[in-house]
């Protein structure tokens, strides 16, 4: 494997966003790119990252390899990069280590680190292709604020999507609260758009603790996409350049 990423910061942000959810992960490398799939310990949430080969320049992967990496170790090394550094990831066949080289774009500094790999026996889940009943795009900062605000009142949030809009509501010991968003187009700042694409009304309840955790990815993308269908996990997607993405799936809360 040899993969050069223009922005070391991108991988750093991804790792920062997922490392409280999952600890040891396989980075599956093949000629289409670098993928990661992992559930949290309680099997409530699933992280799925895809960095397509087009996100790297150049990208070369001659044989499929799984790089088992502890994310705390990876985070430590990625913190050694300067924010504008270029990152090259390298691994040999049947590797013991993954090699990270940081290059400064405007100086001649070159730093190099090896991280020891681990054998991770990870269960891989098949995620079915789903036509969701509701697809919502909104500013990622807005979604983060809603989740944080409602978590002050309750452990759970009900997300209801109708043709009127999308309503986030909660009920707790001190009282209740709700935030409703309607479709909204801002021509000057498309990042502020709220788009709701609904084929049938949806109502589901989710744990706010996990949603707040997912929102650590807000720095990766100005917009977040929420996809919901009744009785299936919520998909929270942060789109990255070149069709790469960071996705989180969250199992709903269900009636007893």
């Amino acid at each position: 494997l040899e993969a050069r990423l223009e922005q070391a910061n991108l991988l750093k942000k991804v790792v920062d966003a997922i490392k409280d959810l999952v600890q040891d992960c396989n980075f599956d490398c093949n000629d289409s790119g670098i993928a990661l799939q992992a559930m949290d310990n309680s099997h409530v949430a699933l992280v799925s990252m895809m960095l397509k080969s087009e996100s790297f320049s150049p990208f070369r992967c001659d044989r499929n390899i799984a790089l088992g990496i502890n994310l705390t170790s990876l985070q430590k090394v990625l913190r050694c990069a300067n924010s504008e550094d270029i990152l090259t990831l390298k691994a040999e066949d049947a590797p013991d280590v993954v090699n990270l080289v940081f290059e400064s774009a405007d100086s001649d500094r070159l730093s190099e680190y090896d991280i020891k790999l681990m054998d991770i026996d990870q269960e891989h889940l098949g995620i079915p292709e789903t036509e969701y009943a509701a697809n919502i795009s909104m500013p990622s900062a807005e979604f983060q604020k809603i989740c944080r605000d409602l978590m002050a009142l309750s452990e759970s949030v009900a997300i209801e999507c109708t043709k009127e809009g999308v309503k986030f509501s909660c009920n707790g010991d001190i009282g209740s609260g709700s935030v409703t968003l309607r479709s909204h187009t801002n021509v000057d700042k498309p990042e502020n758009n709220v788009e709701i694409d609904l084929t049938e009304p949806v109502a589901l309840t989710f744990s706010l603790k996990y949603l707040v955790n997912f929102c650590k990815a807000s720095g990766l993308s100005g917009q977040v996409k929420l996809c919901l269908s009744n009785e299936v996990p919520l998909l929270v997607e942060y789109g990255l350049a070149s069709n790469s993405y960071l996705r989180f799936y969250l199992a709903p809360k269900i009636g007893d």
């Binding site: 409530v44 799936y249 199992a251 007893d256």
Partner: peptide
């Protein structure tokens, strides 16, 4: 009262 379901209830091992 509601309880938390898990992901493996919806997505099966590949």
């Amino acid at each position: 009262k509601s309880r938390q379901s898990t992901i493996d209830r919806y997505f099966s091992p590949r």
